[in-house]
């Protein structure tokens, strides 16, 4: 399982990095989204994998931490998901505004001079 997830993280981030280096703004935005999946999964996996042990506590009594998934990476990723949506929105708006002003969707606002 671990090997699958790490491969998945690797593929997601490789696709994201590749797109990040592309010239068209839409490619970059898709790349950022893929990269944010990869990073979220990466942070999440730092708490180790624990199938079937959600961090929902009983009401009272002794709590054995080893029986539950680590809640800290989850809390970090939860806000990261929402924030990455916000940055995607911001970038999208910058992208369409730049497209409206410059007439091109190249990330530099002008086509590469040959």
């Amino acid at each position: 399982m671990e090997i699958i997830l790490s491969a998945a993280i690797g593929i997601l981030s490789a696709s994201g990095i590749w797109l990040l280096l592309r010239p068209r703004s839409f490619q970059v935005i898709i790349g950022l989204c893929l990269l944010s999946y990869a990073v979220n999964l990466f942070i999440f996996s730092m708490g180790r994998l624990a199938p079937g042990a959600p961090p929902i506590m009983p009401k009272g009594g002794f709590v054995d931490p080893t029986l539950y998934a680590d809640p800290v990476p989850q809390a970090l990723v939860l806000t990261a998901i929402v924030i990455s949506f916000a940055t995607t929105a911001l970038f999208l708006v910058v992208m369409i505004a730049s497209r409206g002003m410059t007439g091109t969707d190249h990330v530099d606002g002008k086509e590469r001079s040959q």
């Binding site: 671990e2 090997i3 997830l5 790490s6 491969a7 993280i9 690797g10 593929i11 997601l12 981030s13 490789a14 696709s15 990095i17 590749w18 280096l21 990869a38 990466f42 996996s45 730092m46 708490g47 180790r48 994998l49 961090p55 506590m57 709590v63 931490p65 080893t66 539950y68 680590d70 809640p71 800290v72």
Partner: peptide, 30 residues
């Protein structure tokens, strides 16, 4: 570059994920 980045992050993730858990602040939260 992309493949190198992907391989790097995948190997780090794998190396950490397969390690035993060390107790951390999460235990206190739990």
């Amino acid at each position: 570059i992309a493949v190198a980045g992907g391989l790097g992050i995948a190997s780090i993730a794998f190396a950490v994920m397969t390690r035993p858990v060390v107790s951390n602040v999460g235990d206190w939260f739990l």
